[in-house]
């Protein structure tokens, strides 16, 4: 079998959606830490977002399925804890897609700079926790819509 080059494989993984926020890929999320050939086996290192993220096992399954669908049979997934995942690894493309989707992307200021729906800067936090571990619940005081903020960690 011809081993596809690593760049091609990164491209394939960039088509695997995050199960909870399907507009971004697992590559956009920054959780794929390494893709490398070890002889005939492809090794993919994945880091969890949050320790208790229930999507972790689904992500592993989706990555493995996507690679098998491309004809790769020898795939080994390994969990890599260090260095711990940070929202700094979210790609610029991913951040733009998040905002488009209605989720305010992480911001170093510790809160969203503007409402992802109407663009108003008049926003307030409702709760530090939102619909998933990685998001907080905010609301816009201009358009009055609630929205998720992808919090920094």
């Amino acid at each position: 079998m011809v081993r596809p080059d690593v760049q091609t494989i990164w491209g394939w993984l960039d088509e695997v959606p995050d199960p909870e926020i399907p507009v971004i890929s697992v590559v956009d999320l920054g959780i794929i830490r390494d893709v490398a050939w070890d002889g005939d086996t492809l090794e993919v290192a994945i880091t969890p977002t949050y320790s208790g993220c229930p999507a972790t096992s689904i992500i592993n399954l989706d990555v493995e399925t996507a690679l098998r669908d491309r004809g790769l049979d020898n795939v080994r997934l390994k969990q890599q804890l260090s260095p711990p995942w940070t929202t700094d690894w979210l790609s610029a493309k991913g951040a733009a897609k998040l905002e488009n989707y209605g989720i305010a992307p992480p911001s170093p200021a510790g809160g969203p700079s503007k409402c992802p729906r109407c663009g108003s800067g008049d926003v307030e936090r409702v709760s530090q926790f939102g619909s998933t571990p990685c998001k907080a619940h905010w609301r816009c005081l201009s358009c009055l819509e609630p929205f998720d903020y992808f919090k920094c960690i």
């Binding site: 949050y50 208790g52 993220c53 409702v126 709760s127 619940h137």
Partner: peptide, 20 residues
């Protein structure tokens, strides 16, 4: 509801740490 979600998420983090 917000507290319910916050507590459940905290529990998830703690159980995830337990796993490690």
């Amino acid at each position: 509801l917000e507290e319910d979600i916050a507590l459940a998420n905290t529990a998830l983090d703690l159980i995830g740490q337990t796993q490690m």
